[in-house]
Structure formats: C-alpha cells, structure tokens
Design a protein around this nucleic acid. Sequence first.
DNA 1: GCCAGATTTGGACGGAGCGTACAAACCCGG
DNA 2: CCGGGTTTGTACGCTCCGTCCAAATCTGGC
Lengths: 199, 199
Amino acid sequence: MREVPEAIAGKLTEAADAFASSFEDLRMDDIARASGIPRATLYYYFSGKDDILGFLFAAMLAEIRVGLAAAADAGGSVRDRLGGLVRALLTQMATHPAAAQLLLTNLGRAGKLPDMAAGLQEAAYGPFERVVAEGMAGGELRPRDAAVTAVALFGAVCIAGLQALVTEGHLEGGRLAATLEELFWAGLAAEQPPTGRRT
Amino acid sequence: MREVPEAIAGKLTEAADAFASSFEDLRMDDIARASGIPRATLYYYFSGKDDILGFLFAAMLAEIRVGLAAAADAGGSVRDRLGGLVRALLTQMATHPAAAQLLLTNLGRAGKLPDMAAGLQEAAYGPFERVVAEGMAGGELRPRDAAVTAVALFGAVCIAGLQALVTEGHLEGGRLAATLEELFWAGLAAEQPPTGRRT
DNA sequence: GCCAGATTTGGACGGAGCGTACAAACCCGG
DNA sequence: CCGGGTTTGTACGCTCCGTCCAAATCTGGC
C-alpha cells in the first residue's frame, strides 16, 4: 500500500478506542467520523476496512512489544521478570480497553489468521518464552516445554483480562496481576509452598 | 424466535466444520449450500447470520458443558478432576477444530458479548471454578481467588489449543493436556516439587 | 378424504455498506 | 507558474443481507 503519514496514523490510533467501543458493527463511516479523516482519504492510504483494522492491530502489537520486551529484559529474578510481563500485558489492556476487547474478540477479522499468529508470537509469546526458557536453563524454573508454557501464560493473562473487561467494563490490573503471578509461580497444589525468591 | 427442529439443527452443526474452515468471510449462501438447508428455510428459523452463529455457539457450549460437567463431577482427587477438565476441553477443540477456531476468533460476533460471557461462565469457567473452590476448601489446593484461577486455567487451555490449531492446523491433545495439567499443578517454580497425589 | 394451518422452498426485491472512479481543490518544490 | 503528489467530495456499481410473497408440501383433526 502507501506509507501512512504520522498525522493519519495518530488520529486513527487515538480514535480507535472511541469507535471500537461502539463495535456493534463498525461502518467505514464510523471510522471516518470518529477519526476525523474523510472516507476518501482513508481509501487513499488503506485498501479497505480490514486493512485499517490490520494497521491498528499492528500498532497495538508494536506498543505491546516494546512494553513486554522491556519487562523481559529488565533485571531481577526470573520471577520478577515474569511478574513484570504479566503486569505489562494487563497495563496495556487497561490503557486501551475498547481496542483490546475488539481485538481479542475479533482476531479472525484483522487479517489472515496465520499472520496474526505470527505477529502475536513475535510480540507477545516471544518475550514470555525467552524468559521462561532462560529460567529453565538457569534452574530457577522447573524444566518443561517452554513454548507451551509461554502460550499458556499469555492466554491465561489475556482471557482473565478480557473477562474482567467484559463483565466489569474496566480493568483493575493490580490485584489481578498479583493473583495470576502468584498462581503461575506456585501452582495450584497446596503442599510444600515453594518459597519464590523475590528480589 | 422459533424452535429449531432436530433435522435442521443436526445438518447445521454437522456442516459447521465444513463452512467454518472457509471462513474468509462466510456468506449466507455458503451456510445454505454447506448445510443443504435452503436460504429461505434458514430465515424461517433464524433471524439472520448472527443468530445462526449464536445457535452454533450455544450448541457447542452445550456440548462442552456436558463434557466438562462430567469431568468436574467425576470421582478421584482434585488434581485428577482438573486434569480431566483440561483434557475434556482440548478434546472438544480437537473434535471440532474449524468450529472452535471460528468461535474463539469471532467471539464478538455470535451475539452480545455479555451474553457470551455469561454462557461461557456457566458452561466453561463454571466447572473449573467448582472444582477449584472445592479443592481450596478441602485443603488440596492453595487458597486463592477461585474465580480468577478458574478463568486463568480456562484461558490458558483455550489459547494454547487455539495456537496449536492455527499454526499446525490440528490438535494433538494428549501431550498438550499433560504439559498444561502439570504446569498448572506444580507451577513454574523449580524448588521443592510438590508431590501431586494422583489416584 | 378433506380442510386449515404450519412448514418448506424458490425467486424477486429494497437497502446497507463497501470499494472504486473521478474531478476539483490544494500544497509545494523547481 | 507548472507538474506531481495529496486531500476531499460525490456518485456509482456491486455484493450480500434480510424481507416479502406465493406456490408447493406436509400434518393433524374431523
């Protein structure tokens, strides 16, 4: 397509939360009105509605990526970094509640699914998997399939966040993050509480 | 609406996997052709496409519900029952791969989201939450917010399953279930492996 | 067997909304 | 002032949805 100017991109991403919340089914005119960009201009830069959704998705993924990458590369114990990842993901969802909800409940529409999966892999599971693999190699984590573990953690956080968004309308990230982080770390089992080292 | 006859319901649910796999964007005619039910008849029983999606969703939920309820009410230790829940959920996804994929990636379309959430709550988190709460009360599980725990488990299984479906095209439930079950039970931490009692 | 009502189906139609075409305006460097 | 890229309004065709209707078929009560 064509390179999207900063002004257009900015207006779109800012308006995303606005029109995403009224997503009964999102008309092209809605996007135009909410973003203040005329329909014709939108078609000048994007090939269609799905392309716009894809663009917004990519923008959100990029934002998530930097947040998660920072959390993954932060110092501290593996447990702290995993906790950071959980918190970063939930923070992202809390910051753009409508967009997050739209995205997670319409994954199949913002482009081809495999591309989507690849993007998520790189931006989302990726950081989780890095930290998990590292922790297993270093002996801090019980050895196990790192890829599956990463996807499971990611899925748990996303769905728990989504559920809170849908039923409560907003996201109180702090408590949720703490519960999830502790659950992941210690597991369900009651016996022999592992003393997770927190730095 | 009108009560859907068994013949219609059967044809639809059987065809669901067929037309769900070609879901670039699902036309009404596709549904009609794939299911062998004429368009006019579909409109006689359903108010529209979303209504059909909703119906299929409900049917799948019902199927999931019985599977999960059975697993939740089975005998054995809490750990066994949780493992059974995980396996039941993945089995369901493996049995209807295309439908599961369509559903999870289009949650926002098969009806109002809050209804959807309520249905999922009842059929999916519900059984998890029952077993989890019971396990915590009985001392087998570490006490913790049971609702959050249940949603997290459910989300982890669903997303891990979905990821496998999208990237590999099918679902090898056994290994995945075992990994997830063990992960949930023991947690990430390496120290002091809790000896999960398996009956 | 016959009738009234419900079900099943085909075909035609109106309308929504998408994406395209195009032309007029505008900006901007040379 | 000119040529090319950008911005925008407007109009159009097309696809597909959902509705309407009428003919055909089925079904149960009598």
